[in-house]
């Protein structure tokens, strides 16, 4: 019995250590060990390693472990908006409420964060109509890599992070701040 109790204690300790490591240790594979680069390529002596660039950026626990929005807003990175002289940069800050969410909290789509990175034409009108509520969106499509799933799950935070989109409780005060699905 004493042996068993000791084993259980060891088991709990190992599990705790493992979860602590997963939760707090940010690690990126080296290019030579990422399974994509040829370790024999002469480029590996020249190309920047992900850990060198990403370890300096605000942390996240999904995707590639970087909070890219915080990196941008906090000035940690200053990516260019244009490379051509005559490109017009369009920014927008309207929030849109998506109410067909079954039993989950409602979804808020924030234009500010999206237009900081993307151009209007990246989404409109191929993926989404410009009228709020005018587009059929569901998780089946998203999980298949359509609609939001074109980016989320591939280059933007992944589909495991439900609450980042499903963020407004049904009937809450936050829901009442929207008029006709839109909040300026």
């Amino acid at each position: 019995m004493r042996v068993r109790r000791a084993l259980v204690a060891v088991l709990v300790a190992v599990a705790a250590a493992a979860s602590a490591q997963v939760a707090y240790k940010r690690a990126w594979p080296t290019l030579a060990a990422d399974g994509l680069h040829d370790p024999a390529s002469p480029a590996l002596a020249i190309l920047q390693e992900p850990s060198e660039a990403l370890s300096a950026l605000p942390p996240d626990f999904a995707g590639n472990l970087v909070n890219w929005m915080a990196s941008l807003d906090g000035g940690y990175i200053k990516p260019r908006s244009t490379v051509l002289a005559d490109t017009r940069v369009t920014l927008r800050s309207t929030d849109v409420l998506l109410k067909r969410t079954g039993e989950l909290p409602l979804v808020v789509f924030p234009h500010r964060q999206h237009t900081a990175w993307l151009d209007c034409t990246n989404c409109h009108d191929q993926l989404f109509q410009q009228k709020a509520g005018g587009t059929m969106i569901n998780m089946f499509l998203i999980l298949q890599g359509e609609k939001c799933g074109v980016c989320h799950g591939a280059v933007a935070f992944p589909l495991t992070e439900c609450a980042r989109c499903h963020s407004v409780a049904r009937g809450s005060d936050a829901e009442k701040t929207f008029r006709n699905l839109v909040r300026e």
Binding site: A53, L118, D119
Partner: peptide
């Protein structure tokens, strides 16, 4: 090998996916 992480530190998505014409797939 095209690394998105490296490029997005230096350019917003819109530069390649709008100005340069790379489709997002």
């Amino acid at each position: 090998v095209f690394p998105h992480w490296f490029h997005r530190i230096r350019f917003r998505c819109k530069v390649c996916h709008s100005e340069l014409g790379f489709r997002m797939r």
